[in-house]
Design a protein around this nucleic acid. Sequence first.
DNA 1: CTCGAACTTCGACTTAACTGGAGGTCATGG
DNA 2: CCATGACCTCCAGTTAAGTCGAAGTTCGAG
Lengths: 159, 159
Amino acid sequence: MAKLGDVTALAHHLTIGQVAERSGVPHTTLRFYEDRGLISAERTTGNQRRYPRATLRRIAFIRSAQRVGLSLDDIAEALSTLPAHGAPTKADWTKLSKRWRNELDTRIDALQRLRDSLTGCIGCGCLSLRACGLFNHEDQLAEYGPGAPKLKAASEGGI
Amino acid sequence: MAKLGDVTALAHHLTIGQVAERSGVPHTTLRFYEDRGLISAERTTGNQRRYPRATLRRIAFIRSAQRVGLSLDDIAEALSTLPAHGAPTKADWTKLSKRWRNELDTRIDALQRLRDSLTGCIGCGCLSLRACGLFNHEDQLAEYGPGAPKLKAASEGGI
DNA sequence: CTCGAACTTCGACTTAACTGGAGGTCATGG
DNA sequence: CCATGACCTCCAGTTAAGTCGAAGTTCGAG
């Protein structure tokens, strides 16, 4: 039953197990995220990872962003503009945020249309989805949809 | 230069190539979607696919839903409650829509929080993200995040 | 009737995002 | 000081969502 004292050695540094437990993200995934450059950790003399508390926020951000359909690459790119440790400059933040705002706004819009069109279809009784906003730019959508393989050159300005 | 007449034979049925072009989804992907039960087509005597026009709306729906992070399985399940051809009953629609509304509302909410927290961080100057709504339920999130492997039994009530 | 574009199936390959196991190292209560 | 559990690296396997190519068939303008 040897346990790492709950009185965590060095209150500001969490072990990978602690981060895994608190964030709900498996430790294997945390190492994976590190490989992909999403998070980072300092090492003890014995080569074990020690995470700053801020990592929990970073992970929360990652999972939130992922949940709404952004790829780890997009997220990594965004996060890379922030220093791993220490406070980012206001300029960094502004730039990152501007790029994301557009993308997020677009996605929020898409979601709302999806939701409202469903609701609308019930409300108006148009059981075949005809005339519902979402479905009437049929030929316009596409452009670049989802898909594992990178169809369009990874990045080209936006996320 | 033999081209399929632009005066489409049987105005209500599109070839896979036409659907691909109009929807922007590659024909290979259309066949893949058929395998996964997302769309379907009638066949000519020569075994070629002929899609009803409504398929374009179905595809638009699929891509929209995917774009905001829903899996093809979720989408397939939702679409499966609608008949492939012909009008669904109002009851079908109501049921489908109710389930999706919750999920979509949740996602919209998450997106908005993500966006607002970014914006807020700039506005309030809290350069380290401290005190921003999104990041303060740190230990609560997780639950079930994204991930290719099916961690939690595929479906368990909601999408 | 012919010819090329468009279609068919099928199976192997790719990418993203994990997941799991083998084999070894670190840390700490007893 | 030693056992045990938490940690380490590396690498292979899995799932989702496509993508590609080979080899053969259908379609329809000329």
